[in-house]
Design a protein around this nucleic acid. Structure first.
Lengths: 127, 127, 127, 127
DNA sequence: GTGGTCTAGACCACC
DNA sequence: GTGGTCTAGACCACG
């Protein structure tokens, strides 16, 4: 379900968080679907339960999942995260393009990259 | 010459590195121009000389500057860094846009952001 | 009769307890009226009977209901709980307002909120 | 500086968090003032550094403090937290009064409590 | 010395 | 079985 990259400099809990967020946002995990339990996912990834716990806590805090103690963690309704997710993604993009601009990339360079990526990723139905 | 942002989460040496890179790439610092000495720049920014040392080491390692022992640090010829700089910037941009795409941003969302940034940043003469 | 909110962070037995308390205090459940049996209510809410059992135990302990072994649970006389209920509610309110005060809310802020809530909730006939 | 209440049901990190928030909001801790280090405060309170770490992480996440790795934790500018703090306090108050209303307290009951508390707490200069 | 991450293992409340 | 908290102790990057 998730593969960790130990060469990645980011903390493990952040990787887990990001991977799960993608699964949720992309709809692979449907609303109200149950996520693996803290202990199970920890075992599956061979990491400490506390690390998973932390990732789940962040996801809940960001509205991607909700928790029922004693039952498990469940995917939240899109209405709970959709807005925030898009604005945050937009902000990240803005930062990246600003950096690209100040790094000397020309507008046409950027546009070309955009076209290439969106042509390749059209199966995601993001037009 | 350089202003540090202590609220920035990144390590100081990375900030110094980035700021100097910008000055070099943008031509504010000309090829073969001498950079401030480690000690001087450290004093000016009121930070530890080790931090500057580390930043200079990275800049040399990335080909932006060259060192003449006993003389100082000097800006390298653009031919030494231009290619690498652009491809690295391009790669960063690609990653960011890929992420934006998989985060659900549409092509038109991205294009709009690009136009906005490049309209605002036209004084950088990157068209 | 009762609707549970699984998103609520509080334990289920506490929710059940609170809902029943409201029904009793507001007079929807009359003194000496029989409450649903543990098993029935558990089935109706699709939760574990232990949870209902615990809620009933708390209600009895707080004087809202009385138990006749083998017969069932019954709403107690208002004289048994009225005083305690009001002083406890008063105490909670006091704590909340003290916190609001120390959080920097002005007296007029608080008064405004009070008016708003009591204007909206006048159908509860608490003037 | 802080006293923990072990009878309190809330987690320790939340208590620490709340106490520090009060110290910050009330101005006892001034902007840009340094907070005790994670390890020091942990020793002082005789609890595990991780618990303090968690409290500090929450405070940063809520904008009450900012962190400079290797230097320490510092009180953020009021502009960073003032708005959110007040709206959150207002929300808490609203919930409490709604509960009081549905618990059968009359408007005059509530008003009386408000007056009593704000009369007592007038040295806090909250009018 | 500073914060940040991670592990290992324990205990608790809830269901 | 579930999540949540806490401890103890280790290691790392930064300055």
């Amino acid at each position: 379900m998730i593969v960790l990259d130990y060469r990645d400099k980011r903390p493990l809990y952040e990787q887990v968080c990001e991977k799960l967020t993608h699964l949720i946002v992309s709809g692979v995990l449907q609303p109200d679907e149950k996520l693996p339990s803290v202990r199970n996912l920890a075992m599956e990834l061979s990491i400490n339960p506390n690390t998973i716990q932390r990732a789940y806590a962040m996801l809940e805090q960001d509205g991607y999942i909700y928790v029922i103690t004693g039952r498990g963690n469940f995917v939240a309704q899109p209405s709970a995260w959709q807005n925030e997710h898009l604005t945050s993604a937009r902000q990240d993009l803005e930062d990246a393009i600003t950096r690209a601009c100040s790094d000397g990339l020309s507008r046409s360079d950027v546009l070309e990259v955009v076209e290439r990526i969106y042509a390749k990723g059209r199966d995601n139905s993001n037009d």
